[in-house]
Design a protein around this nucleic acid. Structure first.
Length: 648
DNA sequence: GCCCTGACGCTACG
DNA sequence: CGTAGCGTCA
C-alpha cells in the first residue's frame, strides 16, 4: 500500500514490459516476441540530482509487478493481494496527470488490457497520457525510424552514455536503461517543441497510442472452417492451372518462378519478337523482360500461356496471403487481431501486419470449379476473404468512408476554382463531373470508360505516378498516358501551380508540411542527379496530400474514440482503419445512432478551429453496414438524426 | 541433406 | 507515392 501511494505521488513514472526470457522493451527486438511476465516501473522524484553515473536518486524507487494469468477455475476467490496491487497500479498509471514514459507504449497498454480483460474496460485507456519516445523519434524524422531503443538513444543523446555495459549486472543495466529513457524523453520533447511538432505529438499521436491499443486488444471473429475449405478449393484450382500452364508452354516449369517464366516466354516462345509495336515493361533493378501483369496483358493475344499465368497468380495470391496467411495468424484460436504500427509510414499513415488488414482484396474472386457430378459439370464459386470476417452475435459491422479525401484535399490545397466547384456544387458523381469537364462533353455523355479514366488519371497525379505506371494501369501507350496527365493539368491550372509551389517550398526550406504540421524532410530535393531530384519532388507533393489525409483520418479516429469512451451507453469498437475508411463493430440496437454520430463527427472535420484548419471543400462520408465484411450495403442517414457538432 | 539471409520480382490495399 | 507479404534464387 505504501508503494501504491508512492507511485501516485511520484513526479514521473518510467515503465517497461519484462519478458519471460528476462529481456525488456529496451533490448533489441526478438524475432518472436516472448510472452510478457511482468512490468518494471521506475518512480522518479529526483529530477535534478541524478546523473548517468548514479542514475538512481535517493528519492527514486523501483517496483516490479508480476503479470500472470490465474486459471479460470481459481479466479472466483483467489485474487491475491499482489494481483490487486498490480491492477491498482495499472489503473493509476492510466488516470494520473503526471507524466508516464514508456518506449513502445502501445504494447504496454495492450498488455494491460489483455491481462485485465474483465476488470479493465478498453474505454479506460482513452484518457491516459502516456509518452512514447519511439513516436517522438519518428515524428522528428519519419523517413528513418530507429530500429530499437539503443538505436534511438544513439541518435538523440548528446554524449555516449554509461561506459561498457559488459560485466555489469543485468539489473543495473535495466535501471540505467529506464533512467536514460526518462532523459531521452525530455530531450525528444524539447526537440519536438523547437520543430513545431509538439501539438501534433501531444494532441494527435499520443492519443493514437490508446486508440491502437484498444483496437489491437479486440478479437475479430473469423470463419475458420470456411477458410480451410477455401484453401483446399484454391489448392486444387492451382494444380489444374499449373497443368494447363505446362501444356501451353510445352514443358514443365515452376509456375511461381518469374525467372523460369521469363525463359519460357522470351527465350523459348520468343513472344517479344511478335509485338514490336508495343513496348514491354522491364524489371526495375536488372532491366530484364518483365513478367508483370502489365507485360502479360500485352502478350495475352499471342499465346494462351499469359492468361493462364495471370489467373494462376490471382489464385495463388489469394491462397497464400489471404487464406493460408490468415490461418497461420490464427494459431489455435478462432479469432485474429492485427498489429497496428504507428511509426512505420513516412507520410503519417498507419500500417497493419499479421495479418495486413489493409490489403485484403476488395473484390471477390470467381472460380470455375470442374467437377464430375451428374447434372452439372461446372460450378462457379466466389471466393471472398473479407466475407470470412464476422461480427459477434448481436453485433454488426459498420464502415465509414471519407469519399475522395485526397482529391478533396487537392482541391483545397490548390484552391483550383474548377475543382472546388465540383465539390461545392455536386450535381453528379464526382468522377463523372470531372470527366465531363476534362473532356468537354456533357455529363450524360460521359461513358463509364471515361469516368474510370478520369479516376485513374486523377490518382496518378495525386500519387505522383509516372506515365509508365499510368499506362500500365490504364492499358494504353505511355505516350497517351502522358497526354492524359498533361490535359488534366491544363484543365486544372491551379493544381499545377500547387505542385510547383510545393516543390519550390521544399527546395527553399528542405522540408514540406501537412495541414496539421506533420513534417517530412527531403534532402534529395537538391540532388545533382536529375532522377533522384525528381523523385524527391514527387515525394514532396505526395506527402502534402497523403499526409494531410492521414491527419484527418487520425483525428476522426480519436474523436470517435473519445465520444464512445465517455458515453455510458455506446459500445462500438474500432476493428480496422483502411486509410480513408474506418470499420467498426456495433451493437445491433445502436447501429443507426452510431452511424449518425460517426458521419457527423467525420464531416465536421472540415473546420477545426483550434488548429486553424478550414477546408475550402466539404467532407463527405459514406456509411455502410453488414453482417460480414464481405457484404456491406450503404446506410442512408436522415440529416435530422445527426447530433449537433460534437466536442473536440 | 538442413535452415537462414538478403536481393529481387510481383501484387494486394489505399 | 508507400505500406505488407508471398515467392524464387544464390
Amino acid at each position: 500500500m505504501q508503494m501504491l501511494e508512492k507511485a501516485g505521488k511520484a513526479k514521473a513514472l518510467v515503465l517497461t514490459l519484462v519478458y519471460q526470457d528476462g529481456t525488456t522493451q529496451l533490448d533489441p527486438e526478438q524475432k518472436l516476441g516472448p510472452p510478457v511476465c511482468g512490468l518494471l516501473a521506475l518512480m522518479k522524484n529526483d529530477l535534478d540530482c541524478s546523473t548517468p553515473e548514479d542514475p538512481l536518486g535517493p528519492n527514486d524507487s523501483l517496483v516490479y509487478l508480476k503479470l500472470e494469468h490465474t486459471p479460470a477455475w481459481a479466479q472466483q476467490h483467489a485474487h491475491t493481494s499482489q494481483e490487486h496491487f498490480t491492477r491498482d497500479v495499472l489503473l493509476q498509471v492510466l488516470s494520473r496527470s503526471q507524466p508516464v514514459v514508456c518506449y513502445k507504449a502501445k504494447d504496454f497498454l495492450r498488455t494491460a488490457l489483455q491481462f485485465y480483460r474483465r476488470d479493465l474496460s478498453w474505454k479506460r485507456v482513452a484518457g491516459c497520457l502516456i509518452q512514447d519516445p519511439q513516436v517522438s523519434g519518428w515524428l522528428l524524422d519519419p523517413a528513418n525510424p530507429s530500429s530499437c531503443y539503443q538505436d534511438l538513444l544513439n541518435k538523440h543523446s548528446k554524449r555516449p552514455p554509461t561506459t561498457s555495459a559488459l560485466g555489469v549486472k543485468k539489473v543495473s543495466r535495466v535501471i540505467s536503461g529506464l533512467c536514460s529513457l526518462f532523459w531521452l524523453n525530455m530531450e525528444l520533447c524539447s526537440k519536438l517543441q523547437s520543430q513545431g511538432l509538439w501539438e501534433l505529438y501531444s494532441d494527435m499521436e499520443l492519443s493514437m497510442i490508446s486508440v491502437l491499443a484498444a483496437m489491437e486488444s479486440h478479437r475479430i471473429h473469423v470463419d475458420k472452417d470456411a477458410l480451410k475449405r477455401t484453401s483446399d478449393l484454391l489448392g486444387t484450382k492451382m494444380k489444374q492451372l499449373e497443368q494447363e500452364a505446362h501444356r501451353a508452354a510445352g514443358q514443365m516449369f515452376l509456375v511461381t518462378s518469374n525467372t523460369q517464366l521469363r525463359t519460357v516466354l522470351f527465350e523459348k516462345l520468343c513472344l517479344h519478337e511478335r509485338c514490336e509495336n508495343k513496348k514491354l515493361p522491364k524489371t526495375v533493378n536488372k532491366q530484364q523482360q518483365s513478367t508483370s501483369e502489365a507485360a502479360l496483358l500485352q502478350l495475352q493475344d499471342l499465346h494462351p500461356l499469359p492468361k493462364i499465368i495471370l489467373e494462376y497468380r490471382q489464385v495463388h495470391k489469394i491462397k497464400s496471403t489471404f487464406v493460408d496467411g490468415i490461418l497461420s495468424c490464427m494459431m489455435s484460436k478462432n479469432y485474429i487481431s492485427s498489429t497496428w504500427c504507428q511509426t512505420s509510414v513516412v507520410t503519417g499513415r498507419i500500417s497493419a501486419k499479421h495479418p495486413n488488414f489493409q490489403a485484403l482484396p476488395r473484390q471477390p474472386l470467381q472460380i470455375t470449379k470442374k467437377q464430375y457430378i451428374q447434372g452439372k459439370e461446372e460450378e462457379v464459386v466466389t471466393v471472398h476473404p473479407r466475407a470470412m470476417f464476422i461480427p459477434q452475435e448481436g453485433w454488426t459491422f459498420l464502415a465509414a468512408d471519407f469519399c475522395q479525401v485526397e482529391l478533396r484535399l487537392l482541391a483545397h490545397l490548390s484552391a483550383d476554382p474548377e475543382l472546388l466547384r465540383i465539390f461545392t456544387h455536386p450535381q453528379a458523381d464526382v468522377f463523372t463531373m470531372l470527366a465531363s469537364q476534362w473532356k468537354g462533353v456533357s455529363e450524360v455523355e460521359v461513358t463509364s470508360e471515361d469516368r474510370e479514366h478520369a479516376k485513374r488519371v486523377v490518382y496518378s497525379v495525386v500519387y505522383g505516378a509516372g506515365r509508365e505506371r499510368l499506362s500500365g494501369i490504364l492499358g494504353v501507350s505511355g505516350e497517351q498516358a502522358s497526354r492524359f496527365q498533361d490535359s488534366f493539368l491544363q484543365t486544372y491550372r491551379e493544381v499545377q501551380a500547387f505542385i510547383q509551389r510545393t516543390v519550390q517550398k521544399c527546395h527553399n526550406q528542405g522540408y514540406v508540411l501537412s495541414i496539421m504540421g506533420r513534417r517530412r524532410t527531403l534532402p534529395n530535393i537538391n540532388s545533382p542527379n536529375w532522377g533522384v531530384r525528381m523523385q524527391a519532388a514527387r515525394q514532396a507533393v505526395n506527402f502534402v496530400v497523403q499526409g494531410s489525409a492521414a491527419d484527418l483520418c487520425k483525428t476522426a479516429m480519436i474523436r470517435i474514440f473519445n465520444l464512445v469512451s465517455s458515453s455510458g451507453s455506446l459500445s462500438a469498437r474500432l476493428i480496422a482503419q483502411l486509410h480513408d475508411e474506418l470499420l467498426y463493430e456495433v451493437e445491433d440496437s445502436q447501429v443507426e445512432r452510431f452511424a449518425a454520430l460517426v458521419k457527423s463527427t467525420m464531416e465536421s472535420l472540415q473546420h477545426i478551429d483550434h488548429l486553424g484548419v478550414h477546408l475550402k471543400v466539404p467532407l463527405k462520408v459514406a456509411v455502410s453496414s453488414g453482417k460480414s465484411w464481405g457484404s456491406m450495403s450503404e446506410l442512408h442517414i436522415p440529416p435530422s438524426l445527426s447530433p449537433p457538432s460534437p466536442l473536440h
